[in-house]
C-alpha cells in the first residue's frame, strides 16, 4: 500500500464534508461537516509529515485542532443565541442580524 492512499482518503472525507455543508440546513450539522473537512486536512498533514520525515505537519495539525476547538465554542454559542431569538436552528431562517 502506498502512503498516498491516506491523502486519497483525506480527499474523500473532505468532499463528503463539503457536500454536507452545501446540502444540510441544520446549523449544527453544518458545523459538524466543517469539522469533518478540518479533520480530513489534519489526516493529510499527518500523512505528509510521515512521508517526508518532518514534524511540521504534526505541529500544523495541532494548531488546526486548537483553532477548530475555539471556532466550535464561538460557533455553537452563536447558534444557541440564534435559536433563542428565532426558535430555530435552520440556516435558512437566520436572515436578519437582529430580531
Amino acid at each position: 500500500m502506498d502512503p498516498m492512499n491516506y491523502i486519497v482518503l483525506a480527499a474523500i472525507v473532505f468532499t463528503i464534508g463539503a457536500v454536507g455543508v452545501l446540502v444540510r440546513r441544520n446549523a449544527i450539522i453544518v458545523f459538524m461537516c466543517v469539522e469533518l473537512m478540518l479533520n480530513a486536512c489534519n489526516l493529510a498533514f499527518v500523512a505528509f509529515s510521515r512521508m517526508h520525515g518532518g514534524i511540521e505537519g504534526q505541529v500544523i495539525a495541532f494548531f488546526v485542532m486548537v483553532v477548530a476547538a475555539a471556532e466550535v465554542v464561538v460557533g455553537l454559542a452563536i447558534i444557541m443565541q440564534i435559536f433563542r431569538t428565532r426558535r430555530s436552528a435552520s440556516i435558512d431562517d437566520a436572515n436578519l442580524l437582529k430580531n
Binding site: D2, P3, M4, I7, A11, R50, M51, H52, G53, I55
Partner: peptide, 19 residues
C-alpha cells in the same frame, strides 16, 4: 483529485524514527 492523487506513487515514507 482522487484520480490525480492515485496516480502518484510516493514510495516508502521517510518516517519519523530518526528525528
Amino acid at each position: 483529485l482522487v484520480s490525480g492523487l492515485a496516480a502518484i506513487t510516493a514510495g516508502e515514507p521517510v518516517g519519523l524514527s530518526a528525528g
